[in-house]
């Protein structure tokens, strides 16, 4: 939508959009308690489940109990941020027609959604601090080497961008369907399973693993997590992170195409 931006591109408005989103999210304090409460509950259940499984069975190679507990706890922490649909305002605006007023503003609308969504996610990222403190009371979380942690952060950021694209695509389908909630929940549940958020992909049968690693779901959760627990060795970082970049480019291209096609046929109900 660069054509809509008059004159020189200015970054400052988007920072403001992000700040506004943070302030808006902060008003829903109840959700904060819910998120942290349900997070603690899930950490507890995971600890009991994995402990019971390791007590009676042989541990899989390279994945001792403390690694899998670390994996599960970090996966849940990531979920606090990655499970947020930061583009839901696009759906809402398409649904009630207020998207029209955004088209009239001298801004890039997709970039506005990115700034707004990132602000929302940054607020949720604040939840990581109390959640992590709570998690540490329940399980021990391993700390990786500095190099692995740096690779994890990079991979996590790429995972966030991939997640943004997935959410953007889903919300864009509202241009055509006006209703997206069921489709969105389907994708969320598939991501939880196929992205390795619930169960590490290394525990899936070998034939399935190769397929799952190649899917975009793995680029969101599994890749950063496996880097964190050392299942992806430093020698394989370039390949693993490279695949995330490929998915980001592919999904980014789909976002652009869908947005362009959607804007051309935007339907506003009523008036």
């Amino acid at each position: 939508m660069a054509a809509l931006v008059p004159g020189r591109f200015r970054f400052a408005p988007y920072i403001e959009f992000g700040k506004k989103a943070i302030a808006r999210e902060a008003t829903y304090r109840f959700d904060v308690f819910t998120s942290i409460g349900s997070f603690a509950l899930r950490v507890y259940v995971l600890r009991m489940v994995w402990t019971a499984l390791y007590a009676r069975n042989a541990a899989p190679p390279g994945l001792p109990l403390h690694s899998i507990l670390t994996y599960s706890a970090v996966a849940l922490l990531m979920g606090l941020v990655l499970d947020v649909d930061q583009v839901s305002s696009l759906y809402e605006k398409l649904h009630d027609g207020s998207i029209i007023s955004d088209f009239m503003r001298p801004i890039s609308v997709p970039l506005y959604f990115f700034a707004d969504g990132t602000g929302e996610v940054l607020f949720h990222a604040l939840l990581i601090v109390p959640s992590l403190a709570l998690a540490l009371l329940i399980v021990h979380i391993d700390v990786p080497s500095a190099g692995a942690f740096a690779a994890f952060v990079l991979s996590l950021l790429l995972g966030y961008f991939v997640g943004f694209c997935v959410n953007f695509i889903l919300n864009c389908t509202a241009f055509w369907t006006l209703e997206i909630h069921a489709a969105q929940l389907i994708v969320t549940w598939l991501t939880d399973l196929l992205g390795g958020e619930l169960v590490p992909l290394v525990l899936f049968p070998a034939a399935l693993q190769n397929v799952l690693y190649a899917l975009p779901f793995a680029a969101m959760f599994s890749t950063p997590l496996l880097i964190y627990v050392g299942q992806i060795a430093p020698a394989r970082y370039p390949a693993a992170i490279g695949l995330q970049v490929v998915w980001l480019l592919v999904l980014g291209a789909i976002c652009t195409l869908m947005w362009r096609a959607g804007v051309r046929r935007v339907v506003v109900q009523g008036g």
């Binding site: 489940v49 499984l53 009676r56 598939l190 399973l193 619930l198 525990l203 049968p205």
Partner: peptide
Amino acid sequence: GSAIAALWVVLHAFPSMNG
């Protein structure tokens, strides 16, 4: 389906949970 699949994967890797 995803809940049952997750159970299957876990119990495929670890055949027994408390019997």
